[in-house]
Simulated scan of single mutants.
Amino acid sequence: MSDFAPRVFSGVQPTGNLHLGNYLGAIRKFVALQESQDCIYCVVDLHSITAQLVHEDLKSQIRSITAAFLAAGIDPKRHIVFNQSRVSGHAELAWIFNCVARIGWMNRMTQFKEKAGKDRENASLGLLAYPSLMAADILLYRATHVPVGDDQKQHLELTRDIAIKFNNDFSERIAEAGLGTEIAVGEETVNGYFPITEPLIGGEATRVMSLKDGAKKMSKSDPSDLSRINLTDDAEQIARKIKKAKTDPDALPSEPKGLEGRPEADNLVGIFAALAEKTKADVLSEFGGRQFSEFKPVLADLAVEKLSPINGEMRRLIDDPGHIDAVLKDGGERAGAIAEKTMRDVKDIVGFLR
């Protein structure tokens, strides 16, 4: 892709309890990536105020997300774990990117349309502009790869568009300052400062759906707690939620094509496949022709087996906020050192007087 040193960046918002979808779609991938990549994992607390300005206890939510990172197996000594608001470069670079991005780009963002709904005029400016902040989060560390779910692919495309436009608009200054790196953009090679970040998408159940409605994504904001499996749920709660999960009256098919038009069945098979680290085809070869009354108890046992250790460690860590705060402080200092270098370069490229 380029001469940039490979680096992974990703973040999770501190809003409500983390659930199975967050774990399978993001956190478990974070753990796997740290074995082969230089990783920066962030609790994106600035993002958390875009849709809801006032939170009951934002500090405890930040600590809870951090606890989930650590309980799942992320090593904060080998890699960086911090909360976004500790590093001022995120907000500084986001403002510059607000001036790089075009309003038309922002208006096309699907998530803004969904979250703002029909009352778009009353949505916060932060909600409209937060993809620009997301681009700043990634490019502040000149990250080359981001693990994303299907619903975040559009935002990563915007990050790439911003990087390309910045590199093009300031190409001469980047070259004059000796800050450029050869970057492949399509079939062309250009000299730029920011990488064209690549998505990392893969595995089963990259998008986990609600247990009550297979057409809706599993969400922390869903009013029904039965719609999701929280990472803090105990074994009894996990088993009860899977038992009550919506299904259809037909038996499981013998191959994935038979899941078409059956969103709830597809969701539960996808969850089983992801937890067992198998394909949907593998799962259906074992359970095809069997009823959900047989499948659900096996799925519940598997979910309890995989999630209970994380649940217990999360509870232990949450009871030790001093340890979590120390991890975030150390991570913030290390992230800040990288960010400071980027912001010095960017200010020189833009032409600010330092």
Rank of each mutant, 00 (worst) to 15 (best):
E204L: 05
G270F: 04
I196W: 00
L275T: 07
G203K: 01
E204F: 00
S254C: 08
A239W: 00
K257E: 15
P256N: 11
M218Y: 09
I196V: 15
A235E: 13
I242F: 06
E255L: 10
E198D: 14
G202W: 08
I201S: 13
T232F: 10
G186T: 08
E277I: 06
G203M: 04
I242N: 04
D213S: 08
S219I: 06
G192D: 04
L211K: 04
G192P: 00
Q237C: 10
I229N: 01
A251R: 13
K212S: 14
E264H: 12
E188T: 13
A276Q: 11
T189P: 05
L268F: 08
F272V: 03
R228F: 08
P249E: 10
N191W: 03
R240H: 14
I238C: 05
T189A: 13
G186F: 06
L252F: 11
T197L: 05
E277P: 06
I183D: 01
E264I: 07
G270R: 02
L275V: 11
N267I: 12
D233L: 10
N267L: 09
A235R: 03
K244Q: 15
S224W: 06
I201D: 03
G270L: 04
S210G: 11
D213T: 08
A184Q: 15
K246D: 03
E264S: 14
T206M: 06
M218F: 02
L200K: 01
D234F: 09
T247I: 11
K246N: 11
A273Y: 02
R228Q: 12
A274D: 01
T247R: 04
T189F: 11
A184E: 15
Q237R: 15
L252S: 10
K241N: 11
V269N: 00
R207Q: 14
G202A: 12
V208W: 00
A265E: 02
G214E: 04
P195L: 09
L211S: 07
A274Y: 04
E188L: 11
A273L: 10
N230F: 03
A251P: 01
D213W: 08
E260R: 13
G270W: 01
G214V: 09
M218N: 09
I242E: 03
I201Y: 01
L268C: 13
A184M: 14
N191I: 12
K220Y: 02
G192F: 01
A215W: 01
G203A: 05
F194W: 05
I229S: 03
K241C: 05
D222C: 10
M209K: 08
K244V: 14
I229L: 15
N230H: 01
R240N: 12
G270M: 04
E204R: 02
E264P: 07
G203F: 01
P199V: 12
